[in-house]
């Protein structure tokens, strides 16, 4: 890692203030994407602003038909939350499948969303469940939060404080992991919500997206036996692990599994 200065503010306001006074500051959440990138010297911020001491970013609340997860909540905390398990079990399944036990003990939902790795799991949950990303400045609907490869609607210095997940009628998540990194080759969150069926796909393309054709097919019958339209390969990613054709095929398979898991 290159040198940097380290800050550990106690409040969101202090964090934002610290950020604005530095030339190339970065927020540090769980650090499980940023620190490895810094170790490879692919990322060299002047200042790291550690958000872990901010109490307001922690905690899980269920109220008003929503699961509200503080941005600093770790994947392990989500995976093991008995309240979430009751409200949106698919979210626990998804969190339990991120990285490995050690990564889940450090990585946070806020950090993961702000990073928006195209192969990460959480974007599928946020988009698939129609969640709202709450920041220190505003609330951003899932449909306008993700802007493609590592890009989000977050402005410079904006901090995710929480994510609000409306509790769906039912939802399921299925993931086909890349064999080396165990990130998603394809991850699909399929949900039957009050506002209709939502199917979000991560890993397959340069950013999370909704599989609208599959949503339409499931709208009439949200069941594992539903016949789903074939997914087109164009626009999907290709790498040494999976070509676009294979990814397209897997979107269909994972969508079926997700619906089956939703019960």
């Amino acid at each position: 890692m290159r040198e940097f200065s380290y800050h550990r503010p106690k409040s969101v306001a202090d964090a934002a203030k610290a950020f604005s006074s530095k030339s190339e500051a970065r927020y540090l959440a769980g650090g499980h994407s940023l620190l490895p990138a810094m170790k490879q010297r692919l990322n060299a911020p002047s200042d790291l602003i550690d958000l872990s001491a901010i109490k307001d970013l922690k905690g899980i609340k269920i109220a008003g038909g929503e699961v509200v997860i503080g941005a600093g909540t770790t994947h392990a905390e989500v995976a093991h939350s008995t309240e979430i398990k009751k409200a949106i079990p698919a979210l626990c399944v998804l969190a339990e499948g991120i990285g490995d036990p050690q990564v889940r003990n450090r990585g946070t939902i806020g950090g993961s969303l702000a990073n928006n790795d195209p192969a990460s799991d959480y974007p599928a949950a946020v988009l698939g469940l129609g969640a709202t990303v709450v920041t220190n400045k505003r609330e951003i609907a899932a449909d306008s939060f993700f802007k493609g490869l590592f890009e989000t609607a977050l402005e410079d210095g904006e901090i995710i404080t929480a994510v609000r997940f409306p509790i769906p009628e039912k939802a399921g998540y299925a993931k086909f992991a890349q064999p080396a990194s165990r990130f998603c080759i394809v991850g699909v969150m399929a949900a039957k919500t009050k506002s209709g069926v939502r199917v979000a796909v991560t890993g397959a393309g340069p950013g999370v997206f909704r599989a609208t054709d599959i949503e339409k097919a499931l709208a009439s019958s949200f069941s594992a036996g539903a016949s789903l339209p074939a997914v087109k390969a164009s626009g999907l990613s290709s790498d040494i692990h999976a070509g676009a054709e294979y990814r397209a095929h897997l979107v269909g398979v994972m969508a079926k599994r997700a619906v089956a898991a939703a019960g």
Binding site: D50, Q102, V103, R106
Partner: peptide, 13 residues
């Protein structure tokens, strides 16, 4: 008490 990867945590954290 939680198992973590010490190569991905700053001493300061």
């Amino acid at each position: 008490g939680k198992c973590v990867k010490s190569c991905t945590v700053l001493a300061a954290q």
